[in-house]
């Protein structure tokens, strides 16, 4: 089963839970952090279209 390994968001109140959460000031910063996390974790970034990107390990 796929697993959420990290969450990157712009709005703090929208996210919570078990995975590491990264809060960024704006959309651009969010994209950048998500990009780095994708490369570092070897997992794919998926956009939930609500200002949140989740990094998911599909292996």
């Amino acid at each position: 089963m796929a697993k959420i390994v990290a969450v990157v968001a712009v709005q703090h109140e929208k996210v919570g839970g078990g995975a590491p959460i990264f809060i960024e000031p704006d959309e651009k910063q969010m994209q950048q952090t998500a990009f780095l996390l994708e490369k570092i974790l070897d997992a794919s970034a998926h956009d939930l279209k609500n200002g949140t990107i989740i990094i998911v390990n599909h292996h």
């Binding site: 998500a34 970034a45 998926h46």
Partner: peptide, 8 residues
Amino acid sequence: MNVGLREN
């Protein structure tokens, strides 16, 4: 699929 990063 859903591709999150603008670069991709």
